[in-house]
Design a protein around this nucleic acid. Structure first.
Lengths: 109, 109
DNA sequence: CTTGTATAATGCAATATTACGATTAATAAT
DNA sequence: ATTATTAATCGTAATATTGCATTATACAAG
């Protein structure tokens, strides 16, 4: 099997899971960390940041882009990546509701 | 080869990735959603919440517990789960720094 | 035209994840 | 004692992920 039963869950739950999954890898967090500091960066330098091969780094970038977290624009012969600020803020708002704006009014087990 | 190179990354990056990975599944989000509403819940009912088998649900609960997100206490013949409020708030603080307290001072690509 | 650089695409091997049925272990009820 | 209930674990199968080598493509610069 190994096949997540998305039909059992709400669209919100499935989408949130996909977004979190895209972030949930140390190499991809390292890429995001760097882009948050540097604002933008080309693939070649991000290969150095991850310490992984060009091919592997490229795949991580693709995953982040597919999840809508990054944008990339062609710059001469290079690809220039940066955070997609609009989508980032949308995701931040969702995470804020889910994770931070929680008040526990009872103690428990 | 299917083996994440944790040595390439900081402890913070690795830990954050592990925590996010634990949350990044719709069944586990559904479990957390329910526990945030209901405060506490036994395994049997969480099986209904996920719509998955008892065995699969039990594994998801174990993963959340190992990641420190849930606590479980034996209650008669049942297992009573709830959010680990202390760890939850720690994680929320980390996520707040990473995701929400970000200000983009420049536009980009 | 050739060489070097950057990215993309494909294929492979190792490992991880998802899910289930069957089993086990422990307690509760008859 | 036996049976039912509850939850965890084991074994298995299907699928996904991670990472690299290799190849392909495009565009500089020399």
């Amino acid at each position: 099997m190994g096949l997540t039963k998305t039909a059992n869950f709400t669209e919100r739950q499935n989408k949130l899971a996909l977004m979190l999954k895209a972030v949930a890898h140390p190499a991809r967090i390292a890429i995001i960390d760097h882009l948050l500091k540097a604002n933008e960066c080309i693939t070649g330098y991000l290969v150095e940041v991850t310490g992984l091969s060009q091919a592997t780094t490229s795949q991580h970038l693709r995953e982040l882009k597919e999840a809508g977290l990054l944008k990339g624009t062609i710059e001469g012969t290079s690809m220039n990546y940066c955070i997609d600020q609009v989508k980032w803020k949308e995701n931040a708002a969702i995470l804020k509701t889910f994770f931070i704006d929680v008040k526990f009014d009872e103690t428990c087990c």
